[in-house]
């Protein structure tokens, strides 16, 4: 099948309206572009987003420019901005058998009780964001921090790509704070194999 010849990875983000899942999905696409993926797309689940309600966003990374924008069905990776969504939003639905699961939680990967041969990584991004007081509109934001977890758990992007992306996306002051969050998260991420 031609589809299989296209080297690509599909990633689904899970968050709640207001947590910045869509933004970080977009940032991941940009960082991956800097990392050499010629085809990157990222999109929210289409429709109205409501504060607090579970939301998803999808990122597609490919070695060649992308020609298709249909929705991601079977992701190779899920990134979960809040541990509770693992169960309430059925975040691993459709995930490939050896897919990546990256979760913001205090628990260690083994404590999540995920099977299926998933490659699980966890990090307490809430604590990190709290420590460095990374807030938007008064609310703790972990979305950019989770980019650090992606860099640690996979080889898709590096901290350098993340830094470049964040400097492009934010004002210098905000960028440095987000970069710090991503760096601390990168260091704190625990991977199980």
């Amino acid at each position: 099948m031609a589809m299989n010849q296209i080297e690509q990875i599909e990633i689904r983000w899970h968050g709640r309206g207001g947590q910045g899942a869509v933004t970080s999905a977009n940032l991941l696409a940009e960082a991956a572009y800097y990392a050499g993926f010629k085809g990157v797309t990222s999109a929210p689940a289409f429709g109205a987003e409501r504060r607090g309600a579970p939301v998803t966003a999808s990122t597609r990374l490919a070695s060649a420019p992308l020609r298709h924008f249909s929705q991601v069905e079977a992701p190779d990776m899920v990134i979960i901005l809040e541990g509770s969504l693992l169960t309430t939003a059925n975040a691993t639905e459709g995930l490939a058998p050896n897919g990546h699961v990256i979760v913001n939680t205090r628990l260690a990967p083994e404590e999540l009780g995920l099977s299926n041969g998933y490659q699980v990584a966890t990090v307490d991004a809430d604590r990190i964001a709290e420590e460095i007081n990374l807030r938007a509109a008064g609310v703790i934001m972990v979305n950019t921090a989770m980019l650090g977890a992606v860099a640690r758990a996979t080889e898709l992007i590096t901290l350098d790509h993340i830094n470049r992306t964040l400097r492009h996306a934010f004002s210098p002051k905000a960028a440095e704070k987000n970069i710090e969050a991503a760096r601390l998260t990168f260091e704190a991420t625990r991977c199980a194999s």
Binding site: G39, V40, S42, A43, F46, G47
Partner: peptide, 12 residues
């Protein structure tokens, strides 16, 4: 251009 499919999807 297709709403959401292009309007809300980032790409290079």
């Amino acid at each position: 251009y297709d709403g959401f499919i292009l309007s809300h999807t980032v790409m290079p």
